[in-house]
Structures are given as C-alpha cells and as structure tokens.
Amino acid sequence: MEVRTIKVFTTVDNINLHTQVVDMSMTYGQQFGPTYLDGADVTKIKPHNSHEGKTFYVLPNDDTLRVEAFEYYHTTDPSFLGRYMSALNHTKKWKYPQVNGLTSIKWADNNCYLATALLTLQQIELKFNPPALQDAYYRARAGEAANFCALILAYCNKTVGELGDVRETMSYLFQHANLDSCKRVLNVVCKTCGQQQTTLKGVEAVMYMGTLSYEQFKKGVQIPCTCGKQATKYLVQQESPFVMMSAPPAQYELKHGTFTCASEYTGNYQCGHYKHITSKETLYCIDGALLTKSSEYKGPITDVFYKENSYTTTIK
C-alpha cells in the first residue's frame, strides 16, 4: 500500500517557510505537534488534498525554529505562539472599519479597549522592536488589523473576551517599542525636605499616572512627601515624541487643539466601556464603527496623549 502524501510549508514567522512532505494517514499533531492554519487549530486533523502548498504555523520545537521565533517575536515564552494563534482565530472574524481616516474595530468580545489602543497607536510616533509587531502594525494602518490585535493580546497575556485596560495595554506595548531616546527629568520640591531631581528613561519617561493635564504637570502637581507634608512635583525636561497622561476616570474637559487623542471610560472596574476622542479640525468621538463630532467635550476621561518633541522648564 502506497503512502499518500502532500507537500506543505511549516513556519513560526510566515517569513521562513520549511518544506514538509506530510503523510495523509496521520494527523498534523502526530507529525508536527500543535499546528495552526489561519489561526485555526488543526492539530487533530489529517492532511487533505486542499492543504497542498498551504502554510501551517507550528510551535518552535527545534533550534532553527526557536531562533526564527525569537528573532521575529522577541520572546522565548513557549506558550506565546499558541496564544497568538488562538487569538487570531477570533480577531480574523472582527470587522476593521476605516473611521475618520483611522483603522478602528467594530465592537465584539469586549474589544473596546483594543480599538482605543489601536486608534491611539496610529496617532503617536512609535516604532516597535519585534519585527512581528512592526509588520502587523503597518498592515493594521492599511486596514488589516487582525494579526496586530492578536499579537497585542498575546504580548499582554490576554484572551479574547476578557476586559482590558488601555493604560495597561499601552504599557505592555511600550515595553516592546523603541523608547531608548526618551528621557524625563522631574523635580520634587518640599518646604521641609528641599528639592530632589529624578531622571527617568524609556517607558517611565512617557507615562504618568495622577493627572490628565500635561500643562498642569509642567506647572506642578501636589504629591505627598515622605515627611508627610505636601510637596510639588513638576516637569523639568521632556525628550520624547509623545507623552501619555493618565488618571482614574473623572469628568474632564478636553479643549480642541490642546491634545492629540484621549480615552474615555464609562462604567466601573468590573464592567465598563471605552471610547476614543481625537482632536482634528474639530473633536471626534470614535466608538467602534461609530463616529460623532463636537466642538467641545466633557466626560469621564482616563488617558490623554500629547505630541511632544523637546521641553525644558522655565521655572527657576
């Protein structure tokens, strides 16, 4: 009895394709271990004539594949690729409408935090270190965002349907971005203890939790000093293409032309909904596939993004 075979390709990165001759009487799992086709788990399936010449994702289970996976995804987590594939199996079914010149995501599976993050990423200057993220990001900007969303979920250790947080998501993504040249110098002034300067680099240099107003941050924000008295913390120097200011959701007025974009969060910790506000020729609110415009805006804002380049204080 002759062994019926077909020729397929296996890959971990969709760049390096490895030619395989597979036995049609055995499952993919018996031949390769966990195997995925377009995100779908085909591990328990036997090869079919229609699979001839198709590319299958496999887990990096030998040295060659491990090197290829690390170079593309910059992670050695053995569960990463499987999590990416199972997320992709959902995100490829989502709709990605162009809204006001940006790629958004039609609401499904509690994905409003991903839509808000995706919209924000198209408006701030950011370059990702893992080629996987950078490639998928370019495709997302062009309207094909399924891979990018699935990668975000995998890097953030999230599953489809789980509630997510924009600030946490951005923080994970910033860790995989090139923020080497970003720098922030802060000064804390206390009447009792004097003053202390701190220099922050990388992710810490672009994120701040405690106030939404970048102007206020430049002037000074009140913080408790270690001595128990009130101290003032203010920005001395900022070198970065953008800054992200966050605070627990509270009524906040966004003035046209003073910011790049913002995240609105309605609801409580267990259950809520994100919308995205962007400042173009007027203010726009993007909620999944829905767009509304207004000249002014007041609502429960939790993150505001500002364009920056270089700032030095005039406070002496």
Rank of each mutant, 00 (worst) to 15 (best):
T211M: 08
M26Y: 10
G101Q: 11
M170V: 05
A154Y: 01
Q270P: 08
I45T: 13
Y155H: 07
Y306Q: 10
D287C: 00
F80E: 03
P60E: 05
Q98A: 10
G272A: 00
D38R: 09
E253M: 09
L102E: 00
V58Y: 01
L37H: 13
G299D: 03
Y138V: 14
T120K: 00
D135T: 08
T91S: 05
C149E: 06
K293R: 11
N100I: 02
R139M: 13
Y311S: 07
C149R: 03
Q122I: 05
D180N: 15
Q230R: 11
T75C: 12
K219F: 02
A250Y: 04
V3S: 13
N49T: 11
L212D: 04
L119H: 00
V42G: 04
P47E: 04
N268W: 04
Y57W: 14
V22L: 11
E215N: 07
Q122R: 04
Q237N: 09
H51G: 02
E215W: 03
A231V: 02
V3E: 14
N309S: 13
T116D: 03
E308F: 09
L114I: 11
T292M: 09
L37E: 13
N16R: 05
L114H: 04
C182F: 06
T226N: 10
V99G: 07
V166E: 03
Y252A: 09
Y214Q: 06
V22A: 13
A250Q: 15
S86I: 10
F9N: 11
G82E: 14
V206A: 01
N268D: 14
V21I: 13
P60R: 02
Y252W: 12
K255F: 08
K255Y: 04
D165F: 06
V304C: 02
Y36D: 00
V166N: 00
L235M: 01
V203G: 06
Y265F: 15
I301H: 02
A142K: 14
D41C: 12
T116R: 02
T260S: 06
T302C: 06
T159M: 11
P34L: 10
K46A: 13
A247D: 00
W107I: 04
Y306L: 05
V3C: 14
Q20I: 10
T10C: 14
Q230M: 15
V21S: 12
P300K: 10
L17H: 11
F259I: 05
S213T: 05
L283F: 08
K201I: 09
G29K: 09
T278C: 11
Q237K: 12
Q237G: 05
